[in-house]
Design a binder for these strands. Structure first.
Lengths: 159, 159
DNA sequence: TATTGTTATACTCTATAACTATA
DNA sequence: TATAGTTATAGAGTATAACAATA
């Protein structure tokens, strides 16, 4: 009846293919697909950004972001400065090296975007994006209410 | 011009939302979203299946599959028997407990499929699935040729 | 009191390379 | 020779909970 299980499976397959191919393409440069997403979100930001804001942008959480930033900082790609206004916050920004690498990775990943593009008809890209974002929002919004309403059992498997 | 980067980002966001919500829903039962995919692919198979075949089905690789199966075996959800024909192979199948848990998880994840379904119009599900599978194929097919043709550099970042 | 980020910690998934045993 | 799976090993990402500093 509902073909949503197919949607979930297709979504999974496409994402895994994307992720794997991106990882593979970036491997010679010592960077991962997820790290590229982080760097790119910093580029888009232009100026500095806090860690929590960063977490929100790339759908992650503070401790994960922190772990990722530490790795990127070791490579000299990002800097975490003290926040000018809020002393609790950290101002994250790309270094010159980070900017350069991000640009290079953008070029390196061009064939990947080409692959995606050539797999879709004229107007399908937009439809696809719209659907995916709607799905994302739907999946995120009901989550909290489900937890709050205790629709999810706490322990064990009931018989 | 090309909005493929948006496609990639939207794909990532939707998948992460799906994965996170599924993990969350299954957590009280001690199972992960990925493990559910594995179990479900065994259910669909009905009969036994080899580990390599399993890897192919859920877009994984042999050593990952092995690690996952070891965890599932510890929980008594799957069994790996010797293959009747090929002694190198292992015949993987669900145990009674595994079948039962998979069914339970299927029910538990019904609201998730509902969320996806309700986010999409009548015919959008099918379009979405078709597009995603085409994207997947495109991303997988060009990968080998890119490596073979040495389009990907081997070392370091060029200046 | 609420919020930002850190720390410690743990677990799953991913993946490569060298290996074995069978085919 | 080629294939199925194992082993050892490593690393990335994810996440929770307790905590410190600051708002």
């Amino acid at each position: 009846m509902t073909h949503s299980p197919l949607v979930a499976l297709a979504l999974r397959k496409a994402y895994l293919a994307l992720h794997r191919r991106t990882d593979r393409a970036f491997e010679p440069f010592g960077i991962t697909a997820d790290q590229f997403v982080l760097l790119t979100s910093l580029v888009r930001e232009g100026d500095a950004i806090t860690q929590n804001e960063l977490a929100r942008r790339i759908s992650s959480d503070p401790s994960t972001i922190r772990a990722m930033l530490v790795l990127l900082e070791k490579q000299g790609l990002v800097r975490r400065e003290s926040h000018p206004i809020d002393a609790r916050s950290r101002s994250v920004r790309l270094t010159a090296k980070g900017i350069k690498l991000q640009r290079r990775m953008w070029d390196v990943s061009e064939p990947i975007r080409q692959s995606i593009h050539s797999a879709l008809e004229h107007d399908e890209s937009e439809t696809l994006v719209r659907c995916l974002l709607r799905v994302e929002r739907a999946l995120e919004s009901q989550q909290l209410s489900a937890v709050k309403q205790n629709l999810i059992p706490k322990h064990g498997v009931s018989p």
